[in-house]
Design a binder for these strands. Structure first.
Lengths: 157, 157
DNA sequence: AAAAATACGTCAGTTATGTTGACTTATATT
DNA sequence: AATATAAGTCAACATAACTGACGTATTTTT
């Protein structure tokens, strides 16, 4: 059996980089009594206004029950609102409220700052290499879904 | 207030890439009844043979009680063994057993395969850019600690 | 029109992983 | 001898995930 030399450098850098990357939002979220689960839900609703519950489940890859708990809190506290689907009334389409948009922006600002500080220190063209690396690290079967998500609405307002 | 344009592309790529990156080991670990916490402990003990409990706590940034629970299982099931410190007998230095080394290797093989498959598809020199990016994403205060960890023992055997 | 499928929600119980706080034991340092 | 340190332990709790079963509204199929 051929043993590939382990890439401990990248394995460990990914671990530490991701930990600090998620820590900035976590600090703000904890002040509001929210966790990372709320962040993910708010983020993807913000980025995909009118997303259906079942599509959100598909993105997050969690169960309906898990989503239900955090979604209920976000709706109760007026960060997210639900509307019946115009064609199919069974659907509950999800939107961020003004309050929700603001929080989502604050959270993405924190992460954007860390990213921009980093990119600014690197050679021109690095960001394209990094995007490509992260893209190729995703399971092949999921890549087209991710591209569709990322290239979507720039959420201008 | 100046609004920086949010980097949704990198924010979301990081989310999906990290999810799939950790999913490979998770599948194997679940078969053994272990979770991600066990993985982290096993990994850092494997990479730092003879590490003290308190230093491991510093790396993982969890409490003694949390570590205690998973560490006890790994010791009981013969993946990790403890030895008294030769100079200070209060210390319990941690080592992987043969069984533990094997599992740690299998887990890092899975992650290494994903990394190498990715790097192979990219232009020469990309890995240095990626390393730099991940390094600079880490909190400045922690970078020297991380470098010390990463450049350590290549765990040859 | 009736039956089946779908979208969503909910109740109840479980697991994994983290937390605080208080205390113990062994050993080293002052 | 007194104090500090390294590690472990007991108890209680929080969060975020899980499974399984079931209910309700609505749409689609037969």
């Amino acid at each position: 059996m051929q043993e590939t030399e382990p890439r401990f450098d990248l394995i460990e850098l990914l671990f530490f980089a991701y930990r600090d990357f998620t820590d900035d939002p976590d600090v703000l979220l904890n002040k509001l009594g929210y966790g990372r689960a709320h962040h993910r839900v708010l983020h993807f609703v913000h980025r995909n206004p009118g997303i259906r519950v079942s599509d959100l489940l598909g993105i997050l890859k969690i169960t309906k029950q898990s989503l239900g708990r955090v979604l209920k809190q976000l709706v109760d506290e007026d960060y997210i609102e639900q509307q019946h689907g115009p064609l199919d009334r069974r659907e509950r389409l999800l939107f961020t409220t003004a309050k929700g948009k603001l929080l989502a922006q604050e959270l993405s600002q924190l992460q954007t700052k860390r990213i921009n500080k980093t990119i600014d220190l690197m050679p021109t063209g690095s960001d394209e290499i990094i995007r490509q690396f992260l893209y190729l690290m995703i399971d092949e079967k999921d890549r087209s879904d991710v591209v569709r998500l990322i290239t979507k609405s720039t959420t201008k307002e």
